[in-house]
């Protein structure tokens, strides 16, 4: 069982493979995008250097900022819907009234293994005006006047495309949080119970502080994941009606590939990267501030 420390070059050799792949797949494209963003480039070999003009356009681009707003809305909904609900589920599964915990865990996790495109199609069918289960249900309970063409409602559409995302990833965060709660010493929970703590008090005052760091990881994952939301929205609405469900990644894609404006598309990508970093950084700052206050 005694393992001697591996040689430095063995460690380096092993690390090389993922590092090279990472540099090749993430770092190089990012630097390339930064480079291209200073050009007017409509595809092809000819590019014109235009300095920061693309960024000036970007700052004034109403659609981009609208998309950013949609991303933030999505992040807020998903942090509450994914991490929040997952935490509630974890607490429910943790109680001794729930049987067959393994099955709950497996089926809860199941949706996150489906491709986002398939999830988009499934939910498009649910929202479908004529054959969708949602309108069918409303008719069945006599609320016919509430039926509508769901995905064509600009006020609701962002919420409607967020629901599949929430549904899909609750299980994912549930599994992460479950493994964190499993590490909590049973005696702590038992003594809390003996002291007369309610389930709610146990969750807030005992479990949450003890898995704080895991929750932080979940929130950061959730925020960064939703800043780059794309696939299911692309399938469900393609950003429509109009630009009512446009998110940043889709706007970048549409400018780069549908409008073939690669230079400006690159500027959008850099914009997404910077804004994404800012938002994730801000989340961590807020969390640090919040935890410090408690201590």
């Amino acid at each position: 069982m005694l393992s001697k420390k591996p040689k430095a070059r063995v460690i380096f050799g092993y690390l090389c493979i993922p590092m090279l792949l990472y540099i090749f797949a993430v770092f190089v494209p990012l630097v390339a995008a930064l480079f291209y963003s200073f050009f007017e480039w409509k595809g092809g070999p000819n590019k014109t250097f235009i300095g920061i003009e693309n960024y000036i356009t970007l700052l004034k681009d109403a659609t981009f900022w609208q998309s950013f707003g949609h991303n933030i809305y999505l992040v807020i909904l998903c942090v509450i819907g994914q991490v929040g609900v997952a935490f509630v589920f974890v607490m429910i599964i943790g109680t001794r009234f729930v049987k067959l915990k393994g099955i709950h865990r497996t089926f809860g996790f199941f949706p996150s293994t489906i491709s986002a495109v398939a999830v988009g199609f499934i939910w498009t069918m649910i929202y479908d005006n004529r054959r969708g289960i949602l309108n069918w249900f409303l008719r069945a309970i006599g609320q016919e006047d509430k039926t509508q063409v769901w995905l064509n409602n600009p006020d609701l559409v962002m919420t409607l495309v967020a629901i599949p995302l929430i549904w899909q990833f609750i299980g994912y965060y549930m599994v992460i949080l479950l493994s964190a709660t499993a590490a909590i010493d049973k005696e702590v929970l038992e003594s809390a119970e003996l002291d007369g703590a309610s389930a709610f008090q146990t969750a807030i005052h005992i479990v949450m502080p003890m898995i704080k760091s895991t929750i932080v990881v979940c929130i950061v994952l959730c925020v960064s994941g939703n800043m780059k939301a794309f696939d299911n929205i692309y399938v469900m609405t393609a950003g429509g009606p109009g630009t009512s469900s446009m998110v940043m990644a889709m706007y970048g894609y549409s400018v780069s590939f549908q409008q073939q404006n690669m230079g400006y598309g690159s500027a959008i990508s850099v914009g997404i990267f910077v804004l994404g970093l800012l938002v994730v950084g801000l989340t961590q700052l807020l969390q640090k501030a919040a935890t410090r206050e408690k201590e």
């Binding site: 064509n152 600009p154 429509g240 009606p241 109009g242 630009t243 549409s254 549908q258 409008q259 073939q260």
Partner: peptide, 21 residues
């Protein structure tokens, strides 16, 4: 013409058909 123009027209028209513009 080109897709940059049609992309704008198509997106805007979709909103217009809803009466939003």
């Amino acid at each position: 013409i080109n897709s940059a123009v049609w992309d704008v027209l198509n997106t805007q028209t979709q909103s217009m058909l809803n009466g939003d513009t």
